[in-house]
Design a protein around this nucleic acid. Structure first.
Lengths: 408, 408
DNA sequence: AACATTTGTTGCATTGTCGAACATATAAGG
DNA sequence: CCTTATATGTTCGACAATGCAACAAATGTT
């Protein structure tokens, strides 16, 4: 939570100084974020966590309560003497967002409230054909309508977040390139805003970036603040959390790892190069290694591989292991560059994690010893919904960062 | 400048809430940093920059002036009517640091004051043999002594920063591994503190990380906040600035790019793999490509290459160009991962920049189009002293971040 | 020389947090 | 059941920092 002044300032650039109101904003945000991510907490816990005085905490909670974002209840059973501290928790309907995910094999929409409460969620399969963008946007609107009307009375919609399998410019939601959807230079942010017409801010981001955000905030990683999320459907996506903050790059294009070079003797890639990470560790690479499948492709083929692996088919296990090896080799580069604490595997790798784990670790042993030793390679905890959860967190962030101004 | 509370707090973790004193600290830091990096400024310019009230700026400058960090002078010639605004500027001797650099071919020590004012500097050649660590530390102490006694009266020494060609754990200055110095798990921070006995905080960091910091802060890059610095002596080093903040990784080991994989048909590397970036674009790769030099090695060989290139020797130019190509290929991976605005080439690449530029750009064209288009590959502006400057900035950062508490 | 303009200076208002005193709710012990 | 210790909420005044308005000062313009 940075404390950069957000109010309108003098002409040249944003003001760097900070006044008392920004201090209040920061403290409100800190308390609300803690409740949002950590669940219910007593006032005395909040006092300890924040380092603020109990009078201040009382005041902050009072304001959040007036805003309809937090509610207090009588403290439950406690140990030890002393006046019981009331338990504060977020009110989910106090701030609701619409989360959207457009992946290769499915599309999902969810209504999510403060605290990560999912009111409702729909996921539909999507064939791999390329659809006209406006058709997709209309489908999203169609899926969203019933979810929005099913929300409890008096809900407060504050934003919308969309995760897209593609390269997205953050500040305006322009989809620069989404090969698997057939989109290019598409002003998706605008289109969603216009078509859904919800009168709330629309955020669009890359799916892996949001997968990382979802895992960071809801993946039970506690105080871990350097995380790399790696997911695959057709291509390989990578999202990075550095010091607790998403790494976006200057335009939002950071984390494009698919065409990192890993294998001297690899296959030719659609990008023209040879031995790209995607070519060696992506879905197509995996499927190509399972001989009995050569005819099938896409999601059905992946499902078949999962089934074969579960059945203990030696060929399939070897194919998965080979894929894991190249996955690990790429990971070693990433470990050297970022020195993260955790690498989270999502998407395809999440489905196959138990069969991949060993060979990934073996492949990653190429990395610098000191960095390698301290990093843990794990499977996604949030699982299939990591990107959708990330999209909701993205949309909620604006409110959490400035509860007083964003709530109404 | 993050506004995280730094004062002693309750037992579990650092406090997240912020009180008025931290606000003051933030504003003092903002003003001082602006003067430190941007040079002299009138009060009215500071008012515009910070967004704070004129009374507040007057008060802040008053405090910085009382601390001996800033001095005001009568405003010089101005255009337009109105009462002239006094010009504030930093007092270099108000906060002085000792900056140290231990590279492969040289060692340097400098006394640097606020505003980046270099009081004195010594650089000595260093042969490539491996020296006992304590000998090196003693040499540094020896070099530092005359510099410290040559400082103006009443100077205030506030810290020391050391740049090391090796992998350094940030929080305690442990040199995990420095192959070119022959060091391993060496508590250099402690050794410097004990031997120099200056009674100030000692910071140790990787040379490329500090090169990046030096370029970011004194490289005339203005508001650019996503920078990758790439330097080479024997190996390739990489330092990253993300959103204006150094990327260190969870232990400080981030940016280890030397063994990134780039060339399928490459040479064998000392790490055991084949086609590492270092093997293809490092010093040895370059020297190996210049046939007429094959016997010579080290700094003399590099000097010879520079001379041959300046003389227009076709073989040499081709060798440099080939090296540049592989440098560019590695850069394309980095561009894809970080989406930076500027890549700064230092060290060996700085010396050869005019001969490399074209082939580096060609090699980098592999990168994602959108990211490639927006990044500029430049040569270092600070030049040979980038890492030394970075070391001084590192040591000064503590004071700038909290002028009131760190100044005395 | 009068005026407009910009900026420093001063004193008070406002905002936000802290701290002390008091009130309240629980557990433990007799 | 009553008393006591303890932890925490509540209240109100103190304190710190910034903002604001009125005034003063220094400069350019006419």
């Amino acid at each position: 939570m940075s404390l950069v002044n957000g109010k309108a300032g003098p002409a040249n650039g944003s003001p760097r100084g900070v006044a008392a109101d920004q201090l209040r904003r920061h403290n409100l945000a800190t308390v609300l974020e803690h409740l949002h991510l950590g669940g219910a907490a007593t006032r005395s816990q909040l006092t300890a966590f924040s380092g603020l005085n109990r009078s201040t905490i009382a005041d902050l909670i009072g304001e959040l309560s007036d805003l309809g974002l937090v509610a207090e209840a009588r403290g439950t059973t406690r140990s030890g003497p002393g006046r019981p501290s009331p338990v504060a928790q977020v009110v989910p309907e106090g701030a609701v967002v619409l989360a959207v995910e457009v992946s290769v094999d499915s599309m999902a929409v969810a209504t999510v409230g403060l605290g990560g409460h999912v009111f409702n969620q729909i996921r539909i399969a999507r064939s791999r054909g390329q659809f006209h963008p406006q058709t997709t946007v209309n489908d999203i609107a169609e899926m969203a309508r019933p979810l929005l009307s099913a929300l409890p009375a008096q809900y407060n919609l504050v934003g919308m977040g969309a995760a897209i399998v593609g390269i997205v410019r953050r500040h305006d939601g322009l989809v620069h390139l989404a090969p698997n959807l057939g989109w290019r230079e598409l002003p998706l942010g605008e289109m969603l805003a216009d078509t859904l017409d919800l009168n709330v801010p629309v955020h669009v981001a890359n799916d892996a970036d949001l997968g990382a955000l979802g895992e960071h905030r809801r993946g039970g990683l506690g105080q871990v603040s350097h995380i790399v999320y790696i997911g695959a459907e057709v291509g390989i996506g990578c999202g990075l959390i550095i010091d607790g903050v998403p790494l976006l790059g200057s335009a939002g294009y950071a984390g494009e790892v698919g065409h990192m070079f890993v294998n001297p003797d690899g296959h030719e890639c659609r990008c023209g190069a040879t031995g790209c990470w995607e070519t060696e560790a992506g879905e197509k690479a995996l499927l190509g290694r399972v001989e009995s499948l050569s005819a099938v492709s896409g999601l059905e083929a992946v499902d078949a591989v999962v089934k074969l692996a579960a059945g203990g088919d030696a060929d399939t296990l070897q194919a998965i292991s080979d894929t894991g090896h190249w996955l690990g080799v790429g990971i070693s580069n990433i470990v050297n560059l970022f020195n993260p604490e955790v690498i989270v595997l999502g998407g395809l790798y999440h489905r196959l994690f138990e069969y991949l784990e060993h060979s990934v670790n073996e492949g990653a042993s190429r990395a610098l010893h000191a960095s390698r030793k301290m990093v843990q390679i794990k499977e996604s905890v949030v699982g299939q919904n990591a990107t959708l959860v990330g999209a909701s967190e993205l949309a909620l962030a604006e409110l959490i960062d400035d509860p007083a101004n964003a709530a109404n």
